[in-house]
Structure formats: C-alpha cells, structure tokens
C-alpha cells in the first residue's frame, strides 16, 4: 500500500538493517536501522569515512543497498524502475557533496534543471530561480558560468537546485563546508523554511555549529555503524 508522500503524520524514511558494501571488501554501512518522520529535520554526523554520504546515496536510490530494506513514503525503493523511479526522484532534492553542477552552464540554468524535468512553466522557473538566488545572496551570479564560481558559491547553487522544485524530501550533504558563519546562517534559514513548509530534511555534516544547539534528532555513525540517535539539546 502506498502512502502519499505528503502525509504529515506518516513515516517518510524507513531503513531496516541496511548494509552497503563496495567491492572488494569495503563495508560503508552495516545494519543501519532508522525511521524518519515526514516533516522531520534530521542530522547525520560522524567522522570522515563514517558512511554519511553513502547513506544519503541510498536514500535517493543513486546506489542500491547490499542488504536490507529502504522505504520512501511507503514505497520500497529498490523495486522502483523507469517512470516511477523518475517521479520519486522529482520529489527528492539532493545537494551532493561533490555538487554535480554542469560547469559549462550558468548558475540559473543549473538551478532550473530540477524544475525542467517536471515540466514547470518557463515563467515559474524564472521567478523561482531569481528568488532562490536572492535568498542565498547570489543574485549577481545569475548568468555566471558555475565553473567560474568559488566553492562556497557552487555549494549554494547546488543547494538551490536541490530545493528549487519544492521536493517533499531534501537530502543535503555538507551544506556548509565552505561557508563563513553569516552565509551558513543564511543557508540554514533557507533549509528551516523548507522544513516549516513541510519538507523532510536530512542533513549530513561535520559542522558542529549547525547541530550543536538543535532540537532535532541527531544520528551519529561510526565506521558505517549506527552509534547513537539522540534528540539535540534544545537551546
């Protein structure tokens, strides 16, 4: 039975005993079980190489788990193919750690891609792109080729692309790695707004400043295994 993605009370992400190995013998994740509610903001922390990125890749079905079950909005993700998988991915916005920007296209074109694939009207796309660039303090980079931007700017473009299509689930990998305190705050405000609008958000990060004072749940991974899930100490 498929629950609708926007059901607020439902579980958005269900992971049961999920493991992921890479050939020849790398164990990136081992027996991770966690469930994340719809509309929740969720942090994943852990040392470099702990498996944070791997977990996010599994959630957006960029990779398939070696064993275990992953359900998104009630749908077992490994069973989806073709059109259904595409539709699900349209509902998931991902800001990749390595950005995956098209470096020969402008900032605006990069952001627009995620809306174009769901055939949004050109006018709507245009407005949304301007609005996002404004919120991320990048209004003057609208027509700049992304290859010429600084890493911090590229990072924000990636984030803008992830949230542009108003997805129900947003996966963010190191959103603030290259940013100063003020810009970090801007980024977090944007994500918080998305969360308030109903999106489920999963953030993988090393950046203590963004999860230290949070009231949301924080999961720590150690060497691919779930070490702890704790509710953050609310300020």
């Amino acid at each position: 039975m498929n629950k609708p993605l926007h059901d607020n009370t439902a579980t958005m992400i269900e992971m049961i005993k999920v493991s992921k190995g890479y050939p020849p013998d790398v164990v990136a994740l081992k027996d991770v079980s966690v469930s994340i509610d719809s509309g929740e903001m969720f942090f994943i922390i852990g040392m470099s190489g702990a498996g944070k990125t791997t977990l996010l890749k599994l959630l957006c079905s960029m990779e398939l788990p070696s064993t275990g079950l992953i359900e998104i909005g009630g749908q077992a993700i490994h069973t989806l193919k073709g059109f259904k998988l595409a539709r699900l991915r349209q509902k998931i916005g991902v800001a990749y750690q390595d950005f995956k920007l098209l470096t020969d296209r402008t900032a605006a074109e990069n952001i627009a891609i995620s809306m174009e694939v769901s055939y949004k009207k050109p006018q709507i796309i245009k407005n949304r792109v301007r609005n996002l660039l404004e919120q991320l303090d990048l209004a003057d980079k609208h027509d700049t080729i992304t290859g010429e931007l600084s890493r911090g700017e590229q990072q924000r473009i990636t984030l803008a692309r992830a949230i542009a299509n108003s997805p129900t689930m947003i996966l963010v990998d190191e959103p603030t790695g290259n940013l100063d305190a003020t810009t970090t705050e801007r980024v977090m405000r944007l994500l918080t707004n998305c969360n308030k609008a109903g999106a489920t958000i999963v953030i993988a990060t090393h950046d203590q400043s963004i999860y230290r004072h949070t009231s949301h749940r924080v999961m720590e991974l150690r060497k691919g295994q779930l070490h702890s899930v704790a509710r953050g100490t609310s300020r």
Partner: peptide, 9 residues
C-alpha cells in the same frame, strides 16, 4: 545528472 533529478526516459 538529469537521471538523478528525476528526468523520465
């Protein structure tokens, strides 16, 4: 990338 952001075939 198009595939990742959910472009249909």
């Amino acid at each position: 990338l198009l595939k990742l952001v959910g472009a249909t075939n």
